[in-house]
């Protein structure tokens, strides 16, 4: 890869991330400890995985507000499957991914085949799925997840001992995130369908003229997103060791916000895996920083809202300035 293309685009947000980290570290040095880093990582694995799925959706020019209801549904299914069917980790992953993919597929079909605008289609499926989840569970927590699965969730990698004698390490769930990042990057960067995702987001008509099958790509994107949500549900369940059907209320906004922070455009065509990873990190660091600086947790939303609006506003103002000063005639 050529250095120049090494994402000048992602540089500003990376700088913001570094600057913010610096400020937080000055306010509270705890921020820059391995322990805190691992904490941040563990509590945001689900967000990161779902953000990558959302990235693909935004790239096509779509949006998906049903993601929170889908993961709620999949965690419930996963929980039930673990308790009543099999506690085997592979079976669990299979069940979760299959159910996630199926729900994503429904979104994909509604959007690609019935041409329902994504925001409306996913609002509809969100209502249906969430309604079913709450009806079937009555909002009650699912406990009694088998011990073997809980033990699995507690595994740490590269463990080491801290000065105070406690042992910490990378949570095993990282093993899910890393392949997901790689896989998403691989699909977007290295496969024809991935470039097709960018192409239909950039210019739908031309992409079809070039031979891309837009409806197949859309169906793939929403299904893949469902698949990632399935994996995220397994990760979530293994970390929380129980299932709360209400745990994800409003989570879709956080996912979208993180992806947008990472520079993806809701109009489609622009955005990258690297940007999204940085965006998610920024999101997490803000949350973590607010806690470390003892700022009430409610401020988190204010800060996130302001950052979303602020960053896009700056972008728009710059674009307008460029447009205004554009040379339209070479005056002699």
């Amino acid at each position: 890869m050529n250095i120049k293309s090494l994402k000048i685009k992602e540089l500003p947000i990376l700088l913001i991330l570094l600057l913010l980290s610096l400020i937080i570290t000055i306010a509270n040095p705890t921020f820059l400890t391995v322990e805190n880093f691992l904490d941040i990582l563990k509590s945001n694995l689900v967000l990161a995985m779902m953000a990558l799925g959302m990235l693909m959706v935004l790239l096509t020019g779509g949006i998906d507000v049903s993601v929170a209801s889908i993961i709620a549904a999949v965690t419930v299914i996963t929980g039930q499957s673990l308790i009543h069917f099999s506690s085997n980790i592979f079976v669990t992953i299979l069940v979760a991914c299959l159910s996630g993919t199926l729900m994503g597929l429904v979104n994909g079909l509604l959007i690609a085949k019935l041409k329902i605008p994504p925001i409306v289609a996913t609002l509809g499926t969100m209502s249906v799925i969430l309604g079913l989840v709450l009806y079937l569970t009555n909002g009650a927590w699912i406990t009694g997840i088998p011990d073997s699965f809980i033990e699995f969730g507690r595994i740490t990698l590269f463990s080491f001992e801290l000065v105070d004698g406690r042992t910490i390490g990378f949570p095993v769930q990282v093993l899910f995130l890393i392949p997901v990042i790689f896989l998403t990057w691989f699909i977007l960067k290295k496969t024809v369908i991935g470039r097709g995702i960018y192409a239909i987001g950039g210019n739908l008509e031309s992409a079809e003229r070039m031979g891309f099958k837009a409806d197949r790509i859309l169906i793939f994107v929403y299904s893949f997103e469902g698949f990632l949500i399935g994996l995220a549900a397994v990760v979530h369940t293994s970390i929380m060791r129980q299932v709360d059907p209400n745990a994800f209320l409003g989570f879709e906004m956080q996912v979208i916000a993180a992806v947008v922070l990472g520079g993806a455009s809701v109009l489609g065509g622009f955005g990258s895996v690297l940007g999204t990873v940085i965006g998610v990190s920024l999101f997490c660091v803000i949350n973590n920083g607010l806690i470390l600086m003892h700022i009430p947790v409610f401020w988190q939303k204010i800060v996130v809202g302001l950052i979303i609006i602020g960053s896009i506003s700056i972008d728009m103002i710059q674009k307008q300035r460029v447009e205004k000063n554009k040379i339209r005639v070479d005056v002699e």
Binding site: V192, R195, Y198, A199, G201, G202, S206, R209, G211
Partner: peptide
């Protein structure tokens, strides 16, 4: 009928892969 968001290279050559 080009793609503003893709690089010059891809605009030229992507059709091949498709």
């Amino acid at each position: 009928s080009l793609f503003p968001n893709l690089s010059v290279m891809e605009n030229i050559a992507l059709g091949h892969s498709v």
